[in-house]
Write a protein that binds this DNA or RNA. Structure first.
Length: 588
RNA sequence: GCGCCGGUAGCUCAGUCGGAUAGAGUGUUUGGCUACGAACCAAAAGGUCGGGGGUUCGAAUCCCUUCCGGCGCACCA
């Protein structure tokens, strides 16, 4: 028997049925003269926050106040009075409450039905075909390979990885991708910094570039290079020496990125090298832009007509006070190819996204960027239009910054001097489960405080343990029951779900039933933090149920129904945690 | 100056297709294991939803205005 998820999901299927019920009732009321003949307002059906207010609720009577010219409660009475028979439906009863809400109660049996569905789906419970297999590229972290990753990458990693997984569960064909910036200025700077550190090993007075990378990792790599090659490169040209040391250090850094991310349980489908684009793809895209009239030459450089394309994506208005105090239009066009003939990062980025859409055929590309790149959003989308693609298909998730907190105070760190906590160090101190959970507790747009004391704490203060504890507790209960000879392996279909009538039981059932639509919400809004909050809420509802209802001492039928509820909770909890790639331990 | 993101309990944050008494964690106070795991639960206290206007049956949510904080406005990436 194949169950249709939406049938058991109060946020999906039953809503339409409730709408139809109320519409029919209102039409009957008009026919019978209890309501004037008017057009029905565009009312909503929603899941109220409190089970006391029903399983579903509608504002139809309140919205009708103006249309019908009657007080909301009178309208509600007329509608309820004229409702069709609820016999054999999934609805139990209708109630009028508050200013005129119509609260709809589902039958206990309907609610328990979700457990049949969870049981049948098992590890797949929560998956839907909402995304219809559309190809989505999720690019995240994409840290510069010039040094180790930092706290922001830790957040971006947890966010992007769980976003991709949410999309998969919601029926999208999601690809995880890392863009390796292995070309351009920062690599040149990388080479100069390495080269200088190398030379300093032989001549302490050798000048270090003013804007070079200060981190200790640079000096370490230079030392390794010197241990292998000795003085061999001291007498070489700067260019040859820099290239040689880049060829040595860059692959090492990229391998380190891969290793750190794998340790963080992030495994990419694609590692895309920027350098590959410079073998023709950038030139191709520049030609397309030129052919489409999107570029011009000035001061020896090739410029992109930014404003022609990015206005619709909310680009800046470009007004700025001139020196004489007057407001003047300022040219904010972008350089694609510098006067020295080298393409800018922007040009490569256009080629990169062109590749995602036109070459690899993704329906949607999602980039997870730090908030400091937001100025790039509108022109990047505009550039997609400019090359003849559709900028609407490129979505940017802007992620706000992370502040590291310790002892209740922010920890100072400086990227310039290289004094920052690296991802690698963080993962040495903080359990992976804890880090992944913690970094997914906030929606991307909020700045986040990452509290090191909490993350390290293996106690009740750490939210991840609260959730894991619920799972371990269920496992323990089932084990204890089995030890007493009670059969916990029975099919959910044998259980008497209508006995689950306590508020704590109903709230737990309702939350379990809402899991598939919660994943869809997370996927639609690009906000995997919803899953994290979902697991916390599920754990809370289970703990409340546990304290309110006994399993072992209940009568056999009720006991079996509660066992089914425990198992359904366990499955849902496991599935939700697997989206976050956080473990669900059987004991702790 | 222009633009993006934020401002909700002492602290960290949920809550925007406009709804019922604005929620949770943490902190404070107080209860609950002879018990299926107390890493849990229950209760109390704590709010001019930054301020001011507007829209309507109804605004944390929508519109206008203003204040505060973070960030961005390169032939950097």
């Amino acid at each position: 028997m194949k169950y249709e998820y939406s049938k058991y999901d109060p946020k999906q299927g039953s809503m339409d049925e409730a709408r139809a019920l109320l519409t029919k009732a209102a039409q009957n009321a008009m026919k019978n003269g209890d309501l004037p003949e008017k057009e029905l307002p565009d009312f909503i059906v929603e899941v109220p926050g409190d089970v006391k207010n029903g399983d579903l609720a509608s504002n139809i009577a309140m919205l009708g106040a103006r249309v019908f010219g009657m007080p909301p409660r009178k309208i509600a009475e007329a509608i309820v009075k004229n409702a069709p028979s609820l016999k054999d439906s999934c609805f139990d009863r209708l109630e009028i409450a508050g200013p005129g809400f119509i609260n709809i109660f589902m039958t206990a049996n309907w609610f328990g039905g979700v457990l049949l569905f969870v049981d049948a789906e098992g590890a797949d419970y929560g998956k839907t075909d909402f995304g219809a297999g559309k190809k989505v590229n999720v690019e995240f972290v994409s840290a510069n390979p010039t040094g180790p990753m930092h706290l922001g990458n830790a957040r971006g990693g947890a966010l992007g990885d769980c976003l991709a997984e949410s999309l998969k569960w919601a029926g999208f064909d999601a690809t995880r991708e890392f863009y390796i910036n292995d070309a351009g200025n920062q690599i040149a700077k990388f080479g100069k910094s390495l080269s200088a550190r190398y030379m300093q090993l032989f001549d302490e007075s050798y000048a270090f570039p003013e804007d070079g990378y200060q981190g200790a990792d640079i000096a370490t790599l230079a030392k390794e290079f010197a241990d292998i090659n000795g003085e061999k490169y001291v007498t070489e040209t700067d260019e040859a020496r820099q290239q040689a040391i880049i060829d040595y250090a860059l692959p090492k850094n990229i391998d380190a990125l891969k290793a750190d991310l794998a340790k963080y349980r992030i495994n990419y489908d694609v590692w895309f090298k920027e350098s590959e684009l410079h073998k023709g793809a950038v030139a191709d895209v520049l030609k397309i832009l030129a052919d489409r009239g999107a570029t011009y030459e000035k001061d020896g450089a090739i410029w992109y007509k930014s404003m022609d394309y990015s206005v619709k994506y909310g680009a800046n208005q470009n007004t700025r006070k001139g020196l004489d105090g007057e407001v003047t239009e300022e040219n904010k066009d972008e350089v694609l190819v510098r006067a020295n003939g080298i393409p800018t990062y922007f040009a490569a980025d256009i080629a990169y996204h062109y590749n995602k859409f036109a070459v690899r055929g993704f329906d949607t590309a999602i980039d997870v960027w730090g908030a400091d790149h937001h100025g790039h959003v509108a022109r990047m989308k505009g550039a997609m239009d400019a090359v003849g693609l559709d900028g609407e298909k490129l979505d940017i998730v802007l992620m706000q910054f992370v502040r590291l907190m310790q002892d209740g105070k922010p920890v100072k760190m400086s990227k310039r001097t290289g004094k920052a906590i690296t991802l690698s160090t963080l993962l040495d101190e903080v359990p992976i489960d804890s880090a992944r959970f913690q970094f997914n507790m906030r929606e991307p747009g909020s700045t986040m405080d990452f509290d090191l004391d909490v993350a390290v704490a293996e106690d009740t203060n750490n939210p991840v343990y609260y959730v894991q504890y619920a799972h371990a507790r269920i496992c323990s209960i089932l084990k204890a029951l089995a030890a007493e000879g009670i059969d916990c392996t029975k099919d959910a279909a044998d259980s008497h779900f209508w006995l689950l009538t306590e508020d704590a039981e109903k709230e737990l059932l309702r939350h379990i039933a809402g899991f598939p639509s919660e994943i869809i919400s997370a996927a639609k809004s690009y906000d995997p933090a919803r899953i994290t909050r979902y697991t916390t809420e599920l754990a809370t509802l289970f703990h409340k149920f546990y304290n309110a209802c006994r399993v072992k001492e209940a009568d056999a039928d009720l006991r079996d129904a509660r066992i089914a509820l425990c198992k359904g909770t366990k499955t849902t909890l496991c599935n939700a945690l697997s989206i976050l790639n956080v473990s669900a331990p059987e004991k702790m």
